[in-house]
Amino acid sequence: MGHLGFRECSVADAEKLAVHLAEHVAHKERRPEQVRVELLTRCRAESIEPPTPGRCDRIVAAALRAAEESLTAVAAIAHSRVSSKKAWFSGMRWVSQPMAAGPESLPR
């Protein structure tokens, strides 16, 4: 432990911080300066010394990039689901004539 119970930010800490920011902050907040504020808040909560400004920039950029990739993947999945439903519905043929008799008149 360093000064006042805070430890230096390790590579594992930086990766963990980037993942946390991507999952909990960067999906809603796209402004790097705001994500940086959340990074420093998280460091304080985890008793991690604040990273250098350059390292903060890299952690924030990694979090924003991961959130962007995640959102793009979710959008692509949603689009493919909508496209497949449209294809299914366009293949359906609707019968516009009323049934002459009950269900027994349907072909088997």
Rank of each mutant, 00 (worst) to 15 (best):
M1K: 12
G2M: 04
L4A: 12
L4E: 09
L4R: 06
F6I: 04
E8L: 07
E8C: 05
E8H: 11
E8A: 11
E8R: 08
C9K: 04
S10M: 04
V11G: 09
A12Y: 05
A12C: 05
D13M: 07
A14K: 08
E15F: 10
E15G: 14
K16D: 15
L17V: 05
L17M: 13
L17T: 08
L17W: 15
A18M: 07
V19K: 12
V19H: 10
A22K: 14
A26W: 06
H27A: 04
K28Q: 13
K28C: 08
K28G: 12
R30V: 01
P32M: 03
P32G: 04
E33C: 01
E33Q: 05
Q34C: 06
Q34N: 09
V35L: 03
R36S: 06
R36Y: 01
V37D: 08
E38N: 12
E38G: 03
L40S: 03
L40N: 09
R42S: 11
C43L: 11
C43A: 10
R44Q: 13
R44D: 10
R44P: 02
A45D: 14
A45M: 14
A45Y: 02
A45R: 14
E46I: 03
S47K: 09
I48L: 12
E49Q: 09
E49R: 08
E49G: 06
T52C: 06
P53N: 06
C56R: 12
C56A: 15
C56Q: 15
R58T: 14
V60T: 01
V60P: 00
A61N: 10
A62D: 10
A62H: 04
A63C: 00
A63Q: 01
L64W: 00
A66W: 00
A67I: 00
E69L: 04
E69R: 09
E69K: 11
S70H: 00
S70E: 00
L71P: 00
T72L: 00
A73W: 01
V74R: 00
A76T: 02
H79D: 07
S80R: 15
S80C: 02
R81L: 01
V82F: 09
S83R: 13
S84W: 01
S84C: 03
K86Q: 13
K86E: 13
W88Y: 14
F89N: 08
S90D: 15
G91M: 02
G91P: 12
M92A: 03
R93T: 07
S96W: 05
S96I: 04
Q97F: 11
Q97P: 03
A100R: 13
A100F: 09
A100C: 08
A101N: 14
A101W: 14
G102D: 15
P103I: 05
P103H: 03
L106V: 02
L106A: 11
L106C: 11
P107S: 12
P107F: 14
